[in-house]
Design a protein around this nucleic acid. Sequence first.
DNA 1: AATGAATGAAAGTACTTACTTGCATTTGTG
DNA 2: CACAAATGCAAGTAAGTACTTTCATTCATT
Lengths: 186, 186
Amino acid sequence: MIDTALAVFSEKGYEAASTRDIAERAGVNEITLFRHFKNKENLFREVLNARFPTTLLSDDVNRRLTGRLREDLTVLAQKYQEVHLENLDFIRIGIMEVPRNPSCADVVRTIPERLEEHLANYMLDLAARHVIRDANFKLLARMFYGQLFQHVMSICSFGDDSGTLRAESDELIETLVTMYVQTLTP
Amino acid sequence: MIDTALAVFSEKGYEAASTRDIAERAGVNEITLFRHFKNKENLFREVLNARFPTTLLSDDVNRRLTGRLREDLTVLAQKYQEVHLENLDFIRIGIMEVPRNPSCADVVRTIPERLEEHLANYMLDLAARHVIRDANFKLLARMFYGQLFQHVMSICSFGDDSGTLRAESDELIETLVTMYVQTLTP
DNA sequence: AATGAATGAAAGTACTTACTTGCATTTGTG
DNA sequence: CACAAATGCAAGTAAGTACTTTCATTCATT
């Protein structure tokens, strides 16, 4: 039921997604939907919580970091793209509902916030060891992930039936990483 | 009426925006709304067309381009930010409705497409005169404006009551431009 | 087999929505 | 003033919405 709701909310948006439609496509009666989740808004919240892409913030990425800037940025970018492309429905819901739903915004905004903080701290660490030069790491981290998000959003919003955008992912990451390496090497 | 509709669509999204609400806030009877625009979807289309930010694609920007990369990129970025921040309602509608409304997507997607083509051609011109090195200009142009859009979208989606994001605009632009100058200088 | 919990079917409630009809009123223009 | 176009009002239509109620049915576990 939650997966179906995720799909329907993602397709039609919160308002246009009817509980009837969700129930039908989930193969259950509409009433069991309400028995489980009480009301539509609650169902929506449960979907957001249950399908929140926690893999993005997992610790195993930290273990793969070597301290070599180029490699690490590439790993972080690839992981970001990979997880986002696996959770396009969740992301699409975020894009559509966040601007007019504060509680949804509070959930979604934690993703970039934690990622940016993590990357900024990583850079701070490298700077302390004089591997990279000093800079506004908060801003750079936000820009780094912002660039990646923008690419995912293009795929999400304008579609990518031909797969051209997805195919460009690797080149984008390489270009992006190269820029940051150039900027940050003393 | 169109301005009111723009505001309401932007606040609530297409589905949740009721014609009654739009009419009331515009200070007209609901029926005159239908007499003018026939139906809700038509009203929405008219809003998109009437408030499309054409200033972004105006020619007067071309006249301000000097051929000096850093200055030109700065001008383009500032103009982009300026126009987008003046049209936040339109942008917000785009963000929310594009993913599930193909006709809306067709209208909105022309903005990045034309901007990217313009910037790519500009770079191609500089490359032909050996001012900058060769590169994937299509991709670089998309990334450049993508980065700027992402910043506008943050303001749009997560709000910017404290004005911190807006305050960071200039620094972001400077950092962004510097990166592209570094990347493109032979 | 028996008990309790989850599920289903059908019907219905109260409300909102986009959109319409008929007629009166205002408004701009010659 | 006179005419025509635009606007307003009141009421209503048909359909869809989230959500509820009653009762019967399945189902797993003891």
